[in-house]
Nucleic acid binder design. Structure first.
Lengths: 217, 217
DNA sequence: CTCATAAATGCATCATTTTTGCCACACGGT
DNA sequence: ACCGTGTGGCAAAAATGATGCATTTATGAG
């Protein structure tokens, strides 16, 4: 799991970020001051650091100096919006820059961009309380692992990648089975039902009459 | 194998450190007083020295003076927590400072940081209580050596480098055997099972139906 | 609008097929 | 002879798909 360190002196901000990134499938830790940050970075490797500039003790720029040799990507977070600060941060080797107050969706998007740039992408899909780690080929529902067969897993991934979109029976079948769809077979239905049961999706994975199925989250 | 010398007049402390660092794959020796320490350091090279300040005979600072020209990194261990002691130790050239009582996890982490700083990192993989030293081609389970055959070792390294990731049978086979995978062979399974048994990984090295295997730690 | 009807989907059960676990033993190099 | 390795065979486990029937839905005739 990808590990992200959040360094910000305002606990509520840390928590906000933590909640959103955790929901997106990342493993987050947060600290409120610079020295703690350095201790943690030394103790365990992180894949990404979100760093506030204004910190008690060592400020963000100091920490940046320390982090740079470790080649861990850093996104700065700050209330400052002046160009010179932005430039200073990027010169120090930051990968990106977020200005408070920021939109959480934007935050997650930028995190993903930076991680992709560093090839630290685990392919993680989320929908409600379900998390799918495509590398591990593991599925978690409310934090607990769910064991799926291949067909079920294939369907799951398709649905998760197309949340709230109705998928044609033919398209589903051909992508999971790699075979042409036979109109009068109960096979697809059957597997959809088994998936519904295992995921507790009796109400979420709905049939679209004459079309196929849709995952509603 | 990386060699670490522990210098502390309290034998139980030495043993505690020894056990933990050994489990992490290091080769430890310990002595209880300063003069013995100097003798050992002269006799064989160490990669790192953990040095207690309060010692009978020559104290830690004296030993530090002696060690400094050898360019061996030193981590101080002490009950003193005053800033002036910390400064004194660091001025003498210590790489880090641990205050008793310390957490063993922290100890191991600091040791690793210092060794990394000195580029004394052997390629060591860890997963749970298993340590693999790729340079020495040695495997430890809970500190005890495990003897593996070539194929088993090859598989082990692949799994350890890809913890919690499902690996395809084809990929495993081709990387370890360097040969194309024959779908109906029981060879891979067999070696996976042998590895499971030797490592006590009956529950960790799981089959992913139709895909391959995954090491869960 | 109501209701019959056909089509589509839900679902339980069972047989079949595929995959994996694992034992015994054979082979070949040292 | 010993060790590492691989084969064959078989059992166990898991996944898959067919069948039959119930239930739901859409739709158009009345």
């Amino acid at each position: 799991m990808i590990k992200i360190l959040i360094v910000d002196d305002e606990k509520p901000i840390c928590d906000l970020i933590d909640i959103n990134l955790s929901a997106a499938g990342y493993d987050c830790k947060s600290v409120q001051d610079g020295l703690q940050a350095i201790d943690l970075i030394e103790a365990e490797p992180f894949d990404l650091i979100l760093l506030d500039i204004m910190l008690p003790g060592a400020d963000g720029y100091d920490i940046m100096e320390y982090i740079r040799p470790l080649k861990v990507p850093v996104i700065f977070i700050t209330a400052k919006h002046e160009v010179k600060d932005r430039v200073k941060g990027l010169k120090l080797g930051a990968e990106d820059y977020l200005v408070k107050p920021f939109d959480v969706v934007e935050l997650v998007a930028r995190v993903e961009v930076v991680l992709r740039r560093y090839n630290k992408t685990e392919t993680i899909l989320t929908a409600g309380d379900v998390v799918v780690d495509e590398d591990a080929r593991k599925v978690l529902k409310a934090g607990k692992p769910v064991v799926l067969t291949n067909k079920e897993y294939g369907l799951l991934v398709l649905f998760m990648r197309n949340k709230n979109i109705a998928l044609f029976r033919e398209s589903l079948y051909e992508k999971v089975w790699g075979d042409e769809y036979l109109a009068d077979s109960r096979t697809l239905d059957l597997h959809v039902q088994r998936l519904r049961k295992k995921m507790g999706w009796e109400d979420n994975l709905v049939a679209v009459y004459k079309v196929g199925y849709r995952l509603e989250i």
